[in-house]
Amino acid sequence: MKSLILRTTTRPIIVVLLLISVFLLLRGHDLPGGGFIGGLVAAAAAALYAIAFGADAAARLLRVRPELLVGWGMATAVVAGLLGMVAGREFLTGLWWVIAVGDQEIKLSTPLLFDVGVYLVVVGVVLRFVLSLEER
């Protein structure tokens, strides 16, 4: 599977896919996308890389073990839920902060943070699936 064409085309594709995945994650609250979809796209990119260059190379590129992505993702999602309680509301209640940067507004919120957690978990999980199977 490690053909030359695959190898040469993979790198740019991956960069594009990763950018798309972040874009999908961030716009998810308003347009189709979100943590799942973004995470799946990113994971697909990584899976592609693993298939093209082998599991070891993918693991080296990643630098972080997938388990840690999963762990941090879960922790992020839980913390996003807990922030609502810290603010004296129910668990998983959305909190919003709008920051004005020039004429653009950046909306930061716990649902977004939650979605980031989802994103991380999805990426970590799919990588774990693919890497475990590729390693053998």
Partner: peptide, 20 residues
Amino acid sequence: ARGRNIVNVILVDFRAVDTL
């Protein structure tokens, strides 16, 4: 809930426990 994508808002807000 400040979101325009209702499906996503359900996932991360209205029914976020499911997603968690």
